[in-house]
Amino acid sequence: MCDQSGTERLGEIIETSTVGFVAECDELHCLPPLGSLVRVRGAEGEVIYAVVTYGETGSIDPGRRVVRRGSADLRDQAIYQRNPELRHVLRSVFSAAAIAYRRGDRLSYLLPPLPPPLHFSVERVSLPEAQQVTDQPRYFAILAQYRGEIPADQLLAAHARYLFDVRQSDRDWLERAARELARIFKHDYDRLVPLLEALDPDLA
């Protein structure tokens, strides 16, 4: 349904703020996974890194409801083949929370000084770059404070799972991530345990 593996750009920012942004995908359904890392190159050369916190697909016009198009004989991908206009009247959007920014060689695990500009491109982050940015999971504290469409714990779990895969099951990194979570939630055992269980590849 979505093959954009060859392209860097995912979409374009349509809402922006200091804590994150909302982007519309270039292609319908081509959403980055929950918890994955994306980036925006800002107007002054800075690179803002953000974690995908939410995705949805719906009507491009809030006044027009999406209605059923299929039947027992027409379903799933065939519906899109038979209704080619759907790719133009529907859209996929995702939200992302900023976790860090880079100016020159300096990477700061802080919210960016300025929001990324509207209409700027949101891009995938290459594996080496993602590994480098997330090597020290100190920014987990920012995600733990996330208030949005999904619970912060779900976001942290999804992000850690995503990175564990990106890092090719790097157990050393997983241990660092677990320690960071233990530090953040040292006073909240009830949140910490389910999170650690969600991270444990042996329980997955």
């Binding site: 083949q81 038979r82 206009e85």
Partner: peptide, 14 residues
């Protein structure tokens, strides 16, 4: 303006 093409492959320009 809308151009809708049906068949295989289908297409749309809006």
């Amino acid at each position: 303006g809308v151009v809708l093409s049906y068949g295989e492959p289908s297409g749309a320009r809006l």
